[in-house]
Write a protein that binds this DNA or RNA. Structure first.
Length: 496
RNA sequence: GGCGCGUUCGUCUAGCGGCCUAGGACGCCGCCCUCUCAAGGCGGAGAUCAGGGGUUCAAAUCCCCUACGCGCUACCA
């Protein structure tokens, strides 16, 4: 395969959907694997559904994932413009040419008539589709319609016999009977082309060699092939990718949860993990490798390892993979990535150690939470006590571990406070050494004693290792919290 | 309704006629490690390969039928 040209052709009608991005990713990988070009073309031919900002969001999604494109909006290229709304003359010319050659025709049927026709067909349980009434209009009839200024569309005159087949790169040969397709619209009455015409004209004009798109497009391939034929173009190769499904096996959509790639970014996923996970939805390297670098992907991607069935988007596995990538990051890198999320949380949870985040503290905290978070956004919920002055908790059952009573705890806190003053460096090694000894002196098990201290120091019973946590917190804060614990306990005992 | 595509553990998948008493991963369960939580290590449960017919010495792998799922059937893409 030499210099393949592939494209990603989204329409700006909504969020950058996971499924679309996966298609973009496969196209990009294909281009990179075989040293070709990846072009982005915006299919903005639907005036009704156009959504401001959608195109920008789509490009942002690509950028976030690291899918750079060789030609397209913003970067230009030799086959521009890359917005279909700016290429109208091409579609008009192609449509007119087919009309002139009798391969397409103007249709003057009103929306009302078409609706009525469909209702009748449904009632008769007949084959639904345009009945071709305007296909056989006489010259005189046409002239009259034109004279009256009737609005019209242009329909493609589908052959009424024969078959059309495609040798799909992923599914093999698929064949359809032509008579099963109606005369579909190629130019709308607003002067814009429909998807079918625009995609064919542009893929040809932009010299696209391989069309890799979602499986939902397979049934319209014969229409496209017919258009290629009618226009005298030689068609590209087609490959139809399996779809991405929700847990109920329906096409993945909003009601299944987050579907926009940008939502995943905001939720705290890493683009590297997203790419790795998405590529596995319909492709595999071998029988065991799942975590792969982008480079490995580019070096090994191939269509013959694309699977056929739709794949359910498994959030749990994505989360696991994100954790794998988080653990793999150098701590400084993780700190930088986590900072924006943490800053937002600090802002929301004032008062605390005020944003912006103290870099030294964050750098000290990151190694402690790195293997405990699955999302970049989880630092606050896993380690808020690192960033707050006061921690809150119920002094009862949490502070008083199993097998202890209030007096024991009080005494243990007292002795700890006493010892802490003598630890010169307040490093975790010294803390551990000294406090382990103290546990023995007090006749408490490490579990009991450290459990009590953990709650007193962090307010939680599940935290990173105690001594490292204390080291990061620092002597003053730890002492303040231990004092605070004593007060809480005393207050509670007073009530009792 | 018609047409098309699909169907291997709950999920993502390996498998392209004998290596399969079907492998890996997520999730789940247990054990180990251990100051808690994670991470990690080890082990386990979990798929009669949708069902039924063929072809073959031999089928998850090839063919046919059926079932089920999904997609398409617009002046949406």
């Amino acid at each position: 395969m030499e210099n393949p040209r592939v494209r990603y052709a989204p329409s700006p009608t909504g969020e950058p959907h996971i499924g679309n991005m996966r298609t973009a990713l496969f196209n990009w990988l294909f281009a990179r694997r075989y040293g070709g070009q990846f072009v982005v073309r915006v299919e903005d031919t639907d005036q009704e559904r156009f959504e401001p900002g959608a195109q920008e969001a789509m490009l942002e999604g690509l950028k976030w994932l690291g899918i750079e494109y060789d030609e397209g909006p913003g970067v230009g290229g030799p086959y521009g413009p890359y917005l279909q709304s700016q290429r109208l003359p091409h579609y008009q010319a192609a449509a007119e040419r087919m009309v002139d050659q009798g391969l397409a025709y103007r249709c003057y049927c009103s929306t009302e008539r078409l609706e009525q026709m469909r209702a009748d067909q449904a009632a008769r349980k007949a084959f639904p589709g345009y009945d071709g009434r305007c296909r056989d209009l006489t010259g005189a009839q046409r002239e009259e319609l034109v004279a009256r200024g009737e609005p019209s569309v242009i329909r493609f005159a589908m052959p009424r016999s024969g078959t059309t087949s495609v040798e799909d790169l992923i599914r093999g040969r698929v064949e359809w009977r032509n008579e099963l397709f109606n005369d579909f619209v190629i130019m709308k009455s607003d002067g814009f082309p429909t998807y079918h015409l625009a995609v064919v004209v542009d893929d040809h004009l932009m010299n696209i060699s391989h069309v890799l798109r979602a499986e939902e497009w397979l049934p319209s391939t014969p229409r496209h092939l017919q258009l290629y034929g009618a226009l005298g173009y030689s068609p590209p190769r087609f490959g139809h990718l399996p779809m991405i499904l929700g847990p109920d096996r329906d096409k993945l959509s909003k009601r299944h949860g987050a579907t926009s790639i940008l939502e995943y970014r905001d939720l705290g996923y890493l683009p590297e993990a997203m790419v790795n996970f998405m590529v596995l939805l319909g492709w595999s390297l071998d029988d065991k490798t799942e975590v792969m670098s982008r480079q490995t992907l580019v070096e090994n991607f191939s269509l013959d390892r694309v699977s056929l069935g739709g794949a359910i988007f498994d959030q749990e596995k994505l989360a696991w993979m994100n954790g794998v990538y988080i653990r793999d990051l150098p701590p400084e890198d993780l700190a930088a990535r986590v900072a924006p999320y943490l800053e937002a949380d600090l802002e929301k949870n004032l008062p605390c150690f005020k944003p912006p985040v103290d870099q030294d503290r964050l750098l000290a905290v990151v190694p402690l939470i790195q293997e405990r978070i699955k999302l970049l956004s989880e630092v606050w919920e896993r380690g808020a006590f690192f960033f707050q002055e006061h921690v809150d908790y119920e002094p009862g059952a949490t502070l008083i571990q199993k097998g202890m009573d209030g007096d024991t705890v009080m005494w243990a806190l007292e002795r700890t406070l006493g010892d802490l003053g003598y630890i010169p460096d307040f490093q975790h090694e010294s803390l551990e050494q000294s406090l382990r000894k103290l546990a023995g002196d007090l006749g408490l098990s490490p579990r009991q004693f450290f459990g009590t201290l953990r709650v007193a120091v962090t307010g939680r019973n599940a935290t990173p290792p105690l001594f490292e946590t204390m080291e990061v917190l620092g002597r003053e804060l730890v002492i303040r919290r231990l004092n605070d614990a004593q007060e809480r306990l005393a207050a509670m005992q007073g009530e009792a």
